[in-house]
């Protein structure tokens, strides 16, 4: 398929308690196989999806957060986290997984995939997309 569109996946829910986060990640990984221009947003309780140090032992549910580390290898390296959502939950970027990718245009230098943006900036990012899927 030669068409490339800008896909944005908006992740708004906590990682456990409902299945939305996990099944969203499944769609995101599939989208990588279609060679589209993929970006992700984490907002509202969705910011907890990429919180570091997750331990689901007591829940009896698989901790799928390590999978986010693989996104860079799938060329998914535009990950936007809403600043207001972090602040409302007492989180900073240091509480999040360190998601990185290797930039092939810059001698494979390791770069951060996560960008903290304001809700106003997020509105602009959404406006630039062709397809927005929210989970």
């Amino acid at each position: 398929m030669s068409d490339t569109k800008k896909f944005l996946f908006v992740n708004r829910k906590a990682p456990y308690g409902t299945i939305y986060a996990w099944e969203s990640l499944e769609v995101i990984l599939i989208s990588a196989a279609f060679e589209q221009d993929v970006s992700l947003v984490f907002a509202d309780d969705g910011v907890f999806q990429i919180a570091k140090g997750q331990d689901t032992t007591e829940l009896g549910i698989k901790n799928f957060s390590p999978t986010y580390n693989a996104l860079g290898d799938y060329d998914i390296n535009k990950i936007y986290v809403e600043k207001e959502s972090l602040e409302a939950r007492g989180l900073t970027v240091d509480d999040l997984l360190k998601l990185t990718y290797e930039d092939e245009d810059d001698d494979w230098a390791e770069k951060d995939s996560i960008h903290v943006v304001s809700s106003a900036e997020l509105a602009e990012i959404m406006d630039q997309q062709d397809v927005v899927l929210s989970f």
Binding site: V27, D130, V131, V132
Partner: peptide, 16 residues
């Protein structure tokens, strides 16, 4: 799930 991504590619609007 590829059918969902394909719909996103093929359609003018994807409505969730």
């Amino acid at each position: 799930l590829g059918q969902l991504i394909e719909a996103g590619i093929q359609c003018d609007r994807l409505v969730v």
